[in-house]
Design a protein around this nucleic acid. Structure first.
Lengths: 186, 186
DNA sequence: GTAAAATTTGAACGAATGGTCAGTAAAAAA
DNA sequence: TTTTTTACTGACCATTCGTTCAAATTTTAC
């Protein structure tokens, strides 16, 4: 794939991301995306076989970006207090800075998990949730996370934070989550 | 309007409520709603001039039902500690029992507030939020709500609770909100 | 410079969508 | 019973939608 080609593809992906995040999958037409990206509609079909696949690629990229910011920096510490605290801080930073992706996830995550047609998107999102769950499980093994915390429930709790408006409230929720999750030796 | 007429209209509204809550406004067609309600498509247009108006009526009814459950029972007390505590308890009860309406609001509230076309729906929802805000303002006057709480922000916080999954987590969030909002003389 | 490959375009298609309307059936009024 | 009003139907329309494709243009390889 040449430079120009991947540039165009990127332009389409970016336009689709913005459109889907603002209006949702069903609220956006290929024409609309083409207009935003400033390309002809048929060109979109040169790069993507269908609207569904385009959405899935946008989704997977978005989760990649989120996951990278949350788990990417190779953590030196094995201290799960620090690990989980850092994780939540990074998550909240992401939610307040990367608005388009956050809004996209908030809007479509239910559909991604329910809908059978978006298999790749679903698999990618479940994999991401699985990493959070794994972190909680490890935290329990290391005696940092409360024994009464069910990892699956804790994961749902953490993921639901993406619907919280305003940074001030997010900070409160962060504190609440830390209190609920971690054993309280300071 | 005869009995049969209002029964049919109700059947359509109910079908639309379920469909919209599951798939969102853009994800649902009039044909689909007609199928669920077991009526012909054109009959829907006998009762509603457009899909938009149908949605707005579903929305307004839903907010009515919610508001009625939260503010309806004529409270005897003027104690705003009790009032706000009861309010939050009722809200959480509603979210866990009336799933369709809760999901509808969660799905579409952003669109209702943004979109200019759904004027009635927007006005109704803003009026509902206004009542919550008013309760906070009164609570401040009565020295029950913390001085540093901004009513508008508090309202957003409370409204965002509709995105919280699981009753166990909802109970936690309820406690957090009470802690943030109310002065802590037990 | 020319051939081959990759990229972009515009026109078109069938299906689905929101919406209309003339007409039929049923209920209420007379 | 007849008339008038109300409730319902089916056929149809215009538009938008996702999608296809042959042809044009641009880029790359030789």
């Amino acid at each position: 794939m040449s430079k120009k080609s991947s540039e165009t593809k990127q332009k389409i992906l970016e336009a689709a991301k913005i459109a889907f995040s603002k209006k949702g999958y069903d609220g956006v037409s290929i024409d609309e995306i083409a207009q935003i990206a400033n390309v002809r509609k048929s060109l979109i079909y040169y790069y993507f076989p269908s609207k569904e696949v385009l959405f899935e690629e946008v989704w997977v990229n978005s989760i990649d970006e989120l996951e990278n910011e949350l788990f990417g920096s190779e953590e030196e510490t094995e201290n799960y207090y620090v690990k989980i605290k850092n994780f939540l801080r990074r998550y909240i930073d992401f939610l307040t800075s990367k608005k388009a992706i956050s809004e996209l996830i908030r809007r479509e995550k239910t559909n991604v998990l329910d809908q059978d047609s978006w298999k790749n998107a679903k698999k990618r999102y479940e994999n991401f949730l699985g990493k959070i769950e794994q972190m909680i499980i490890e935290g329990k093994k290391k005696k940092c996370v409360n024994d009464n915390v069910e990892p699956e429930v804790a994961t749902e709790m953490i993921a639901s934070v993406d619907s919280v408006p305003r940074k001030s409230l997010l900070k409160r929720v962060e504190q609440m989550l830390l209190k609920v999750l971690l054993k309280d030796n300071v």
